[in-house]
Each structure stands twice: as C-alpha cells, then as structure tokens.
C-alpha cells in the first residue's frame, strides 16, 4: 500500500486516490500556432523514467483535489507532494 500525503488532508492510503499520469507534460497553449509535433509530444510521448517521476493524482475519495506527487518508480518512495498549482 502506498501512503500519499495529500497537501490538503494529510497522509491517506493510495486507495483514496486515482492516478493522473505524468505531471510534466504541458498542453499546447490556446490561440497559438501549434505544430503536429507539439500535439504529438503532449498526447502520446512520455519519458516514463526509472527513478524520480512527477505525477498527478486526484484525491477522489477525499477532498477531490488534483495534486502533484514526486515518487520513485523503482522503489515507490514518495519524496514530496504539492498542490496542483505549485511547482518543485
């Protein structure tokens, strides 16, 4: 069982959360010229590193807020958790 410290609610078991994937991918900005490659990068391409990974989770059975979690994909150790609008 992973235990994730929700920045709003405190330490909770992983079963209260749902996963949202890589938090570092950025949607191309609105009202700007966007190349096919930009869309490709955003929609499909992922680094999926072995090691530290900044990812989105939603505290779906708690405060329902989206949060950021920095976690090791090999050991599952969680280093930091942040509110969705915060950056490391």
């Amino acid at each position: 069982m992973l235990y994730i410290k929700c920045p709003h609610c405190g330490l909770r078991p992983q079963t209260e959360f749902s996963y949202g994937g890589d938090a570092t991918v950025k949607r191309p900005e609105l009202n700007k010229e966007v190349s096919d490659q930009d869309w490709d990068n955003f929609v499909y391409l992922r680094k999926s590193p072995r090691g530290k990974h900044l990812e989105l989770w939603q505290h779906i059975s708690g405060c329902r807020q989206w949060i950021k979690v920095e976690r090791d994909t090999l050991t599952h150790e969680i280093f930091t958790t942040l509110k969705a609008n915060e950056n490391i």
Binding site: T15, Y19, E55, T73, L74, T75, H76
Partner: peptide
Amino acid sequence: DGYNSYAQRGNLP
C-alpha cells in the same frame, strides 16, 4: 497496479 512502475513486484490493493 495503475501508476508508472519499474518495481517488478505488486501492491496488495
């Protein structure tokens, strides 16, 4: 298991 992982071992939930 539902999140990126290289662990080769699973989680109970």
